[in-house]
Design a protein around this nucleic acid. Structure first.
Lengths: 207, 207, 207, 207
DNA sequence: ATCTAATCGAGACGGTACGTCGGGTCTTCAT
DNA sequence: ATGAAGACCCGACGTACCGTCTCGATTAGAT
């Protein structure tokens, strides 16, 4: 379909590029991805690529945020019990990460590559996950389950950071265990009435 | 113990290479570091580099391990109060990381680049820090301050992971705050008698 | 006629490369000539070199053909006397070769290096010289001076071969003498009436 | 067997090296021959190689002259008829060269590589052939068949040069024809009574 | 319907770095 | 005290990408 304004042609190219990135990432990984390769696969001139994105990291970020690459994990369930919901969210996050560890590693590389892009990747890639869990925790504060003075950002960063650390150290098979342990440790400090969860008993109830 | 490589390896070349890596990392970062550059700076043939290390990540790992890059932070104070000691350790860790953020970024890159090397970096680079804090926590268990069923590895990984995550997202000025928030959240789950710390008061169910 | 390569080849780069080859050959000879060196001197990427020429021998061949290296000697004088003209041509050829012996050595090397290129060098480099002398000899046949059954190719190859052999064996100061001796030996077999030349008298069996 | 004097061990090494050169030349040609390869094949340290020969060209020259590589062609038959003997010699020379054209090319490369070695190669490699034919021609002078004023060196160089030129231009299938044509052209100038040969009729015999 | 100007694909360009090979020198160790 | 083994520095190899820069061809909108 031909659009009236010539600039509209770029829409097809734009889409072709993001799809090429997705395909090539799945086929060979971030390391072997090249701007030349993307252009060739997308049937696009390299100029067109560089017109819109400054670097490999940037175009990967865009493909990511466009939902073509990692579209899962943005939702946190809402059962009414913060502890149950957090545990469910972490389970999904661990599985989602395990399935695309190489992509996560790719994004870490991209992030470390380009300090300017790092911020954008942070916002686009991990942002939605952090936002979702923060929103859930804030609703927990509103409902009185979560202590209002708890540092919710610290909870989110500890979860994401622990997960990234496992990926980074090729220790992914411990991710679920570590996050479970972490959650058990966090809940007493996070919740107003921690005993209602599967967390360790609050102090003073034993001996 | 016998070296894994055949003998007669040049100690001078070895040392010159590790020093060149350190210098170049500090000057320009991991991304701009090249095998050519290392060889040139060290006054060494590229063959010598490739004879002993398979990749840039590997030689960066070795330079790290040799203590030339991040040799501090292996100690955790012992005042008798686990909470105080943890806080002190985290403070030192944050400062030490801030001082060499570019090197930490280099190590993260190396880790993400080379999955094989990632494990070595994990064991050798973050290992000492993790070991130190784990040892301190275990002594806390022995002295009855720390709950014996707490997942101590989760504590260590959450702290290190949170810190690395801040570095990765160029968010270092929040590192101290995040780790303080995290520690306050963890202590109630970690300690037998959390009230003795600066952590938020548990929810009121104590006498 | 359409270029075999796709269009848009850079004329400036092409010329710069051939000039660099010429200069470097004159400075250091074929053996010390390198693709790296050519690229650096020409201010050209190595890829550009390899895009258009498969080997050092090929680019040397092209530089030759471009007339930048050995552009003289393509003419044979026409006085009406074949013997005189051949002698004059050989004199010029010997001098021309002596002046650029190192380039001739380079061409011999290129030829020996690369069997595929050898043929091109044969056709393009020595070809003009051979063609010129063959044309002169054929006119001699037409005018009745040269025996029609003489193997003219053999004459040309013997002259060029003798000359190259002297160069190859670093025996150039005998080139003139050898070719003079050769010509005297050839003329009796070549000419219908050899006595008109400066060649040694045939053995006395002529009236 | 162990000799009393350590230097004697070198004899075995020396021989092993020359044999390795022969084998490797036959297997892969001069271009792919390397000092490393020779040392490895001969079971000899590189130092031992460099102790005795300064370059690849030199050791190839030695292997040649040792008769390991090109041991044929040194003889010229003596039937009493110079023309017949020359023709026979050229036939053998052409065949011998055709069988090892790649070696001849190698020697040309070596010669052009190393101007210092060129002279030695000349003496060792083509020398015997030239000497043999010159000796035969001189005997022809003595017997009155060959004109005493003929430039015998020019004959030898023209034959060898023509042959090398054919090899160099990958034109070997014409070698026999060219040398036959050359010989027919030379004989009238070379012999006292040229009509006794298969050379073209001397001038004046036709019409 | 023709012209004009923007934009496209294609890919050549100057570069940097890659990982490998070979050259010639120097050192170690076993004989 | 020799000689194999091979590490060393060096330089070149040929390839892969980088990001920039033309080329024509295509085509949309103005004439």
């Amino acid at each position: 379909m031909v659009q009236s304004h010539p600039r509209r042609r770029s829409a097809a190219a734009h889409r072709a590029i993001l799809e090429a990135v997705r395909d090539l990432l799945l086929e060979s990984g971030y390391e072997r991805l090249s701007m030349d390769g993307i252009a060739a696969r997308a049937g696009v001139g390299k100029q067109t690529l560089y017109r819109w994105w400054p670097s490999k990291a940037a175009v990967v970020a865009e493909a990511t945020v466009a939902g073509l690459v990692w579209n899962g994990g943005g939702e946190v369930p809402e059962t009414g019990d913060v502890a149950v919901d957090l545990r469910a969210w972490l389970t999904v996050l661990v599985e989602s990460t395990a399935e695309r560890a190489s992509l996560v590693r790719a994004l870490i590389s991209a992030s470390a590559d380009d300090r300017g892009e790092a911020r954008r990747l942070y916002l686009r890639f991990t942002g939605p996950h952090r936002d979702a869990v923060l929103a859930r925790l804030r609703r927990g504060v509103d409902s009185g389950q979560v202590r209002p003075d708890a540092d919710l950002d610290a909870v989110a960063d500890a979860c994401v950071g622990t997960l990234l650390f496992q990926v980074l150290t090729d220790n992914e098979n411990h991710s679920a265990s570590r996050l479970d342990g972490l959650l058990r440790l966090l809940l007493p400090g996070l919740l107003v009435h921690p005993r209602t969860t599967g967390a360790p008993e609050p102090p003073g109830d034993h001996h």
